[in-house]
Every structure is written in structure tokens, then in C-alpha cells.
């Protein structure tokens, strides 16, 4: 597996995201309704979109893994979910801050998007206990992929259900995200979204590279020490943790 990314990606991320945030504060006009507080929108919404898209990407990767049986796709699916969960934490915290500023409460149960996101987040959090509850590596990978596919199907369904549960016409403070967004805000939003997407991809590659180098290190250690120790067969069980057990 060669995860050596094109060197340009991290820099592109830095430039785009910085430019996006600069646009937020120096270019985008203040929202007529909400004023300055609406600036959280450019952080919160791209984060949420990237996290959700990341979950869907993980589902697709899991499907590829199940169909082809190549475990590198399981690793990718795992890392996609992992990074999306990290972004998800940021989504929930920034969402809570926005809710506090707009409505005076840290969490608002009748804002469907926020509630759906919380449910999806909770579901994906169970991915870790599931993985570590299964000993056999090959089975673990397969079951984790089944989970990723199921959860991927769950994401849109959950959003439908929660949105429908919204009673009548809730005064939507997020109305700015509808068609009424002025062009300057649109540009800012799109740049932020692109930056966040690039950030997601950068972090995923970073994480993949870290995991793969740790695995390589473990292999190297086994190759080097194996000569001294000389028992190949008996080490099979702990081999799976070879990269970490010796540290």
C-alpha cells in the first residue's frame, strides 16, 4: 500500500481553508437576521457535510471490501469513519455553541439536522466497541464492513425520519442555508466547504500513512527479531499486535 500523497494536497488544504476563514471574516457580509453569530455557519455546516459524506464514503469502501475481500479497503473504511467521527465532535460542539448563541440553550431538540446528526454520531461511536469485541482479524474486518454498510444506509433514512418529525413550521434560524443566500456568502461557504473537504482528505491520508508505517515497523521488527528469537509459529497470536506490544 502506498499512501504517499501528492505533496501538494496538504498545502492546498492550508491555502483553501485559510482563504475560506479569511473570506468569512473579511469578505462575507453579516447576516441580516442573525448578524455576526451567523459566521459559525461557515465552520459548522462544512464540517457536518464532510463528516456525513465521510460516513458515506466509508460505506462505499466497505462495499468494495466485502465484494473484493481486499483488506486495504477495510482499513480505508475504518480511517474514513475515524476522521469523520473527529469532525463529528467538532460539529456537535460548534452546533451547541451556535444553539446557545441563537436560542440560549446548548442543545435544541426541535432542530432536526442537529438531532439527526447526534443520532448518526452515536451510532458510529459504536463502531469502535464493535471492532474490538471481535477477536479474529479477518472476521473483524468483515463485520466492521457490514456495520459500515448498514450505518451508511441508516444515515439518509435517519435524516428523513427526523426531518419529518419536525412539528409544523419550526421558525428556521438556519434559513440562510436556503436559496436566499447572497452570492458573497455562497462563495465564502463553498470555499470553506472545499477547504474542509481537503482537510478531511489530508487527515485521512495522514492517518493511513501513520497506520501503514506502524504496520511496516511491526513487520520490520518481526523480520529483525525473528532471526534471534527463531520461533515463527508460536508468535502468531500476538503477531497481530506486533507493532505495539513491544513498545
Amino acid at each position: 500500500m502506498n499512501f504517499r500523497s501528492p505533496r501538494i494536497l496538504p498545502w492546498l488544504t492550508v491555502v483553501t481553508l485559510t482563504a475560506g476563514f479569511a473570506l468569512v471574516f473579511f469578505f462575507a457580509p453579516n447576516d441580516a437576521d442573525q448578524g455576526f453569530i451567523q459566521k459559525i455557519f461557515y465552520l459548522h455546516v462544512p464540517l457536518a457535510i464532510c463528516a456525513l459524506v465521510g460516513f458515506m464514503v466509508a460505506a462505499v469502501q466497505a462495499i468494495i471490501h466485502l465484494r473484493g475481500g481486499d483488506s486495504k479497503w477495510d482499513v480505508r473504511s475504518y480511517v474514513s469513519i475515524h476522521i469523520s467521527i473527529i469532525l463529528g465532535v467538532a460539529v456537535l460542539i460548534t452546533g451547541a455553541i451556535w444553539a446557545r448563541a441563537s436560542w440560549g440553550k446548548w442543545f435544541v431538540w426541535d432542530e432536526p439536522t442537529l438531532v439527526s446528526f447526534l443520532i448518526v454520531f452515536l451510532l458510529y461511536c459504536t463502531y469502535y466497541p464493535l471492532r474490538y469485541a471481535i477477536e479474529d482479524r479477518e472476521r473483524q474486518a468483515r463485520y466492521a464492513s457490514v456495520f459500515a454498510v448498514t450505518a451508511g444506509a441508516f444515515v439518509p433514512l435517519n435524516f428523513i425520519a427526523v426531518r419529518l418529525a419536525e412539528t409544523l413550521v419550526h421558525p428556521r434560524v438556519f434559513a440562510t442555508s436556503d436559496s436566499g443566500l447572497p452570492p458573497k456568502m455562497w462563495i465564502t461557504f463553498l470555499v470553506c466547504l472545499a477547504g474542509m473537504g481537503l482537510l478531511w482528505e489530508t487527515l485521512v491520508r495522514f492517518e493511513l500513512a501513520a497506520k501503514s508505517s506502524r504496520a511496516r515497523l511491526g513487520r520490520l521488527r518481526r523480520a529483525l527479531e525473528g532471526d534471534d528469537v527463531g520461533v515463527a509459529g508460536s508468535r502468531i497470536a500476538p503477531l497481530a499486535h506486533g507493532a505495539t506490544e513491544t513498545s
Binding site: 500500500m1 483488506s71 486495504k72 477495510d74 482499513v75 475504518y78 475515524h82 469502535y128 471492532r131 474490538y132 482479524r137 473483524q140 474486518a141 466492521a144 497506520k211 501503514s212 506502524r214 504496520a215 511496516r216 511491526g218 513487520r219 503477531l239 497481530a240 499486535h241 506486533g242 507493532a243 505495539t244 506490544e245
Partner: peptide, 13 residues
């Protein structure tokens, strides 16, 4: 082989 070590080695540990 590589993947065996990979998913969340630290968590597993």
C-alpha cells in the same frame, strides 16, 4: 499482513 496491524492498534492495545 499490513492491514492486520492497522485498524486502531492503539485502541486495541
Amino acid at each position: 499482513r499490513e492491514a492486520e496491524d492497522v485498524p486502531g492498534g492503539d485502541l486495541r492495545r
